[in-house]
Design a protein around this nucleic acid. Structure first.
Lengths: 228, 228
DNA sequence: GCACATATTAAACAACTGTTTGAAATATGT
DNA sequence: ACATATTTCAAACAGTTGTTTAATATGTGC
């Protein structure tokens, strides 16, 4: 992309400006939301003229959609691929804890990544609260694919889980993981001193894996779950 | 409030307009967010003049703070009181499942209430994403009081839980409960037909109670949790 | 009924918003 | 170097925003 091919009539500089606009837009949509972000703020951060948004993307809304969609697909692919790769070892060779840990880390990858932090997941939260994508995009293009991937994997590793219980368990796992992100966001604006945020996240991940594994194993003897 | 006392010099009509503005503001802040809600939209919904916000509240921001804070305190008090009332029966008389169920229902009360639905909890999500309250208000005035109440109650009912594990478990419970709300919000804008949303919520609550109880009991023999 | 306090109101204000427009600059192919 | 395509740009536009202002209407106490 730094190299400009002489055959490309659409111009490399155009791609650079587009990229800068997408990156700037993403950053501002994360921190200010859609309505709180102006086209002028985006173009100033991207070092572009205010009309560049309309030239390259048509409208602010279309820019938003592209900024969100590229991240949404990235998150889905990373999460689904992580599960698929693990499952290549064969379900009988995969400890439940391992599956849960791989999923948790894949789910939280942007958060665990120093460069991105909670931003991308936070952008997804915003899209849920204020949807701008076409109806059901979030469900169809990230939530359901990821949920189905981990659900199938759970059922392969724990064949005693029926469809209904497996899905309920997926919701429990996702809820716990999302909560970590929300706590990070909440504490990031806080005057509380966190000793070591990364260590705290690791601790939560470890807890969730164990907590969840125990509960799942209880379904082996009790399809209704929860009885000891 | 329908009766106007002759002794009240601040005027009943003023309280009526204030109330209408708060209610209208809340409704719009829930659905459109802070930046997506204009003063004109609020005053139109409240059947007031646009300057009424400034007269009664000073600024749009101050109106927002009051609208959010009144609900935040309401949620906290309901949750904490539900736990406290249950604990009056004495921890030795309270099954763990009962405690978890009471907490879950108290936590989700607005959602379970046909009049409010997920709106109020959604308003809290928005405040986390776009804080307008003074720093740490959300933490200090709802999250921590509620977390501490359920943490103490859990430790009273399950004395084998130490501080660290109890807190991690509280996070797991809250994460699962918050996730229900997020799913309701996500599906409310969806073309998916939900057979019976109330029944689905009940099912999730039942699952979370049992799922969580099993996992908690595992700490009895294994302070590190998670081992079977 | 009057004086004073309070609440409501329409108009005005400065600033901001996303978009459009046409000129100018730059890139590209021959 | 020229013709054409693409990109960038400043200015303009109509609409929106939260706030202020002063007049008017309403409420209250005596």
């Amino acid at each position: 992309m730094q190299k400009q091919t002489k055959n490309d009539p659409s111009g490399g500089n155009s791609d650079l400006a587009r990229q800068r606009l997408l990156d700037a837009a993403e950053k501002l949509f994360v921190s200010e939301g859609y309505d709180g972000t102006s086209v002028r703020a985006i173009t100033e951060l991207a070092n572009c003229n205010v009309a560049a948004v309309n030239y390259h993307f048509g409208t602010k809304d279309a820019l938003y959609k592209q900024a969100v969609t590229r991240r949404l697909h990235m998150l889905r692919d990373y999460r689904v691929n992580s599960i698929d790769q693990l499952m290549e070892a064969g379900p009988e060779n995969i400890p439940l804890e391992k599956l849960l840990e791989v999923f948790a880390r894949a789910f939280l990858e942007p958060l665990l990544n120093d460069e991105t932090g909670p931003a991308i997941i936070q952008l997804m939260h915003r899209e849920i609260l204020d949807p701008h994508l076409p109806t059901d995009t979030f469900l169809d293009e990230i939530f359901l694919p990821v949920a189905n991937a981990i659900k199938s994997a759970l059922q392969a590793v724990c064949p005693y889980l029926d469809d209904k219980n497996a899905l309920l368990i997926v919701h429990s796992i996702v809820g716990q993981l999302v909560h970590i992100v929300q706590m990070v966001v909440l504490l990031s604006g806080s005057s509380f001193v966190t000793d070591n945020p990364k260590e705290s996240i690791e601790e939560h991940v470890k807890h969730i894996v164990h907590f969840t594994a125990v509960a799942i194993r209880s379904y082996q003897n009790h399809p209704e779950g929860g009885q000891l």
